[in-house]
């Protein structure tokens, strides 16, 4: 079974994003970048499927300029077998990404595609579901447990109010939630080995997908600041304030 894992290069989750002074976007100049955390969980899950004998090959793909090769190399160091960079300078919407990935799925024919449920930059939570629609595959989003057996993926999903388990016929699309696994750290020997693993570059234009923007980013601003309040000295003062000043308890 071949597993395809799309990953995205995003701002490191420890770094606080700052809005540009001209309010056109978030400032990513000289900011530390990393694999999107949910994508890292997806890579880990695919590598574990391979280690368990359920998968035979793990292919990682990233869409972006040359810089995203850094994240592809990291994924190779984590245990992926080969990497593909779909080369473009353009800032893409989730639908564009899903269309490019659908073309790649056509070429590569993976039985499973595992993606992060959302990126921590755009916070869209769309690509996996869109890819499933475009490839007419079943989808299991927000996975906290994945078991592949008998031509199916049995996936436990994090839903509002609890956990839902569904069974999706392969080929299928899975998106990862936070608790699916805890990604490993790449060891130094594996980082060295990753440098020699294959990394192909394909021009985004060559897929024949219309990448014209459909949504315009008008303005980016800081969220409204909340006024800080007061420090109370004791529990009794707190309860008194909540009752008589804020009037939120009785």
């Amino acid at each position: 079974m071949k597993v395809l894992v799309p990953i995205k290069r995003v701002i490191d989750y420890n770094v606080k994003a700052r809005v540009k002074a001209d309010n056109t976007d978030v400032d990513l100049n000289n900011v530390k970048m990393a694999i999107n955390p949910f994508c890292e969980i997806a890579v880990e899950e695919a590598v574990r499927l391979k280690e368990a004998g359920a998968a035979t090959e793990v292919v990682v793909v990233s869409i972006g300029d040359k810089a995203c090769q850094e994240q592809l190399r990291t994924a190779l160091a984590l245990g992926a077998d080969r990497a593909i960079q779909i080369d473009t300078e353009q800032k893409l919407e989730s639908l564009h990404v899903a269309k490019l990935l659908a073309k790649l799925v056509d070429q590569e024919q993976p039985e499973l595609v595992i993606l992060g449920k959302q990126t921590i930059d755009a916070d869209n939570n769309q690509t996996g579901q869109m890819l499933a629609a475009l490839t007419k595959r079943g989808q299991a989003t927000f996975a906290s447990k994945v078991v592949v057996e008998g031509g199916k993926a049995v996936v436990t999903r994090e839903v509002d109010g609890g956990l839902q388990t569904i069974s999706v016929a392969l080929p299928a699309i899975i998106t990862t939630d936070l608790r699916l696994n805890e990604p490993r750290y790449a060891s130094l020997p594996n980082i060295m080995k990753a440098k020699r693993k294959p990394l192909d570059v394909i021009a985004a234009d060559s897929f024949g997908v219309d990448l014209a923007p459909r949504v315009t980013l008008v303005r980016v601003e800081e969220p409204a600041k909340r006024q800080g309040g007061i420090v109370v000295e004791s529990v009794s003062e707190l309860v008194e304030k909540l009752k008589n000043e804020a009037k939120v308890i009785s």
Binding site: I11, A17, D121, V215, L217
Partner: peptide, 20 residues
């Protein structure tokens, strides 16, 4: 056509216009 939504874990609010 135009909506506001949080991005970057709520560190920024984007105003976006849909051409669809």
């Amino acid at each position: 056509n135009t909506f506001k939504r949080p991005i970057y874990a709520g560190n920024a609010i984007a105003t976006v216009q849909s051409n669809e």
